[in-house]
Design a protein around this nucleic acid. Structure first.
Lengths: 203, 203
DNA sequence: CCTTGACGTGTCAATATTGGAATGTAAGGT
DNA sequence: ACCTTACATTCCAATATTGACACGTCAAGG
């Protein structure tokens, strides 16, 4: 239930309309907590019904501006302080688990693609950093922390993907030397047993 | 729609029952793609209806074993090769965006907590690594890649959280020196403007 | 005047996810 | 025999998320 808290967090800063919130979800929060229009407007109504928000003014085009209430601020703090972090889903890592379904060549290509994606994201973040520092004045403390997290995360992903691609290449070489010449290169050699990696608790 | 592909991936390795799959979702895949019983058994039925799986045998306690079909293997490959990576949600990072709603002391405590959590997870993964290498023989190539990803990710998160806590502490110190002595230490000083960090495209 | 684009809200159906309950079976130990 | 634990499936209601579609308004430029 974090869409709710994302919205409370944004409205804690200043009142805004659904449209305003949507723009934030499409930019700043796009890689943190994506949300669609239907969700935002729906949740706006729910939050108001629950007394965590109140509509404060009507603007030009039927625009409705919402502000957080005291109850909303309390709930926001409660979430920040008391709630357990959620379980994460990683589509990208899931694919890695099943990479043995591809030929080694395909797997290596996939990993290179991952490295590229991470590099592009990293590049995008450095541009955000530069632009924000110069044009829009200094970021807030937490803004900088979030940005730095993104920078480190994308850097880590790129390094890992490049390492993994090389690792895969080497494993493929080993496998090729272990089987008689002329054996099929379909990748079955690198396919011994489903790994049990990825444990460790989130709590 | 990746639950579907997680299940196809597992069944591509060997036939299994819903119960077998559940155990994997609770262990290996717990931090990659969590799933509940209701989801797994439901999806098993859907996948069978769609011809991507077939029930192959009935065991002791009403146990039903499923195997992947050729169509399922095709779909699995399609997903690995063609599908765009999904958008990610990060509850933890979302909180960072709104850390200015807490007092600096509380925010620093939160970041320390994050560091602890990451460290514990990292520790858990090193144990998995040790145990698997010694008891069960070498992991499959992709198993090792996934494990290494987890290791690097948790290490990065811990380092970031420790850095962020220190950064927050410093910012707090700066703010304290900029306001007259005796000013309230509620953290409002570090609260100027919502950052616009976190952009960059996932595709 | 007319068109285009940004602003702005609302609703709908389909699918995904959570969390729990109900039900029963086989195996192993005491 | 009895108990406990692991095995195993099925169903359900509530909530969250996706991806449209429909509707209407204001401002600016040609």
């Amino acid at each position: 239930m974090s869409l709710r808290h994302a919205m409370l967090g944004l409205l804690a800063d200043r009142p805004a309309s659904g449209y305003d919130l949507m723009r934030t979800f499409e930019t700043s929060l796009a890689n943190v907590w994506p949300a669609t229009q239907s969700q935002v407007y729906g949740e706006l109504a729910k939050l108001t019904k629950d007394g965590l928000l109140e509509a404060v003014s009507e603007g030009p085009r039927g625009r409705k501006e919402y502000a957080i209430t005291d109850g909303g601020l309390v709930e926001l703090r409660r979430w920040l302080l008391e709630d357990e972090p959620r379980r994460v889903r990683s589509d990208a890592l899931l694919r890695v688990f099943f990479l043995n379904r591809l030929t080694p060549v395909e797997a290596v290509a996939y990993l290179h693609g991952e490295a590229e994606r991470a590099a592009r994201q990293h590049q995008g973040l450095t541009e955000v950093e530069r632009k924000v520092e110069w044009d829009d004045g200094p970021l807030s403390v937490n803004g900088r922390l979030a940005l730095e997290y993104g920078l480190r995360f994308t850097a880590m992903r790129e390094e890992w993907a490049r390492w993994a691609a090389e690792e895969y290449r080497l494993a493929r070489g080993r496998a090729a030397r272990e089987v008689p010449a002329g054996a099929p290169s379909t990748g079955e050699a690198a396919n011994a047993g489903q790994g049990t990696a990825g444990a460790g608790q989130e709590g």
